[in-house]
Write a protein that binds this DNA or RNA. Structure first.
Lengths: 197, 197
DNA sequence: CGTTATGTACACCAATCTGTGTATGTAACG
DNA sequence: CGTTACATACACAGATTGGTGTACATAACG
């Protein structure tokens, strides 16, 4: 027990099975859903024996949990780390989804797991909170009078667009972006929003 | 073949098995999800033999389809048929959900079925379109300059609140209502909105 | 080198799921 | 009454699922 049997294991041991399993999870859970993806199929795609998979993860639940935890570290960096944009533009950039995004994996997981007590659901809540916080942060930079509220509102718009896109099978993010523009303009005093003119 | 083996069958034949099956579907699909509800359990709750269930529905898919079709006829009548409210108040009333609403069944179904080609997904789209249309109608009565756009926007807010409520396990409809108020006020010329003062 | 962690191949189990076959009731209607 | 459509009880098929047991291979490290 050298206490390094898990975690990031910075290339020390192993031949990458764990990473391949998580990679296959991302692909299959996203494309087919969690419940419709069996461990057999997952192992085949990961090119890993089933026995190995169960040596890395105690069960499918734990794999799902780790799959969702992976999204945490980088909360939409492609949106928030763009220094070339004004805060206001950054807020709006969150609504320019590359259309490859099928549905926020946490919404899908919450529906499929159907258990608010599931550890994966905890990560989902944490992630949603993190998104709202980053939006609030940008809102503060943009000079919003109530950044927390604006952040929460924009986060709701993103989720709404994601859900609606999935159900209607057509992109709803432009609609969400239009709403966002209205919200942002009505939440930022005129003097601040003048910075981008 | 008297062509009345299906459909509403207005109390003519049968002893209500079909209705009990659909009733149990509503309860179980809502509480547990579609995939987590087996036909055995469903039949037990409906107090119907499994054989009977399969005489009324060719398969689970057809049952799911019919389950979703049932929501169509009355599109949120408790919101839109209230003559005591002004159009603007009616629009906002759509965001006062009784909290018992777990998640729009169509969002859940879209995630669980995971197949845009599924006939049930078609009903989902129709329902969403119907909701947006009714909101647009109320928006027109309220004097909005672009009722269709406002209807679509409000529909997106409802879906966002529903999805977010599910993931965060806490009511997001107040946030959505706040956004709706901003949108409505900015989409209706001042002269019209004065009607409610 | 040898040890140990890591991974493999493959059969297998128990549970569960959708769906059927068969033989038998029973309520409703003419 | 008798006919017929509706419904039942119950066993069972066939497939898939999550998960194990066992014996064996191999890469990494001291």
């Amino acid at each position: 027990m050298t206490e390094l049997e898990k975690g990031p294991l910075g290339r020390r041991r192993g031949r990458g099975a764990r990473e391949r399993i998580l990679g296959a999870s991302q692909q299959l859970f996203r494309d087919q859903g969690i419940n419709r993806t069996g461990m057999d199929e997952l192992c085949a795609v990961a090119q890993v024996s089933k026995r190995t998979a169960y040596q890395h993860f105690a069960g499918k639940d734990e794999l799902v949990t780790e799959y969702l935890r992976r999204f945490d570290p980088d909360v939409m960096p492609e949106v928030f780390d763009r220094a070339d944009l004004t805060p206001r533009e950054r807020l709006l950039a969150a609504f320019e989804m590359p259309a490859s995004t099928p549905l926020c994996p946490y919404i899908a997981a919450a529906v499929e797991l159907h258990d608010p007590q599931h550890p994966a659901s905890r990560y989902a809540r944490e992630y949603k909170t993190a998104i709202a916080a980053r939006l609030a942060e940008a809102a503060r930079e943009a000079g919003a009078t109530d950044p927390e509220q604006l952040g929460e509102q924009l986060a709701l718009l993103i989720d709404g667009a994601a859900a609606r896109t999935r159900v209607l099978d057509s992109d709803s993010f432009p609609t969400a972006a239009a709403i966002a523009a209205v919200l942002i303009d009505s939440a930022i005093p005129a003097s601040s929003s003048a910075a981008q003119r």
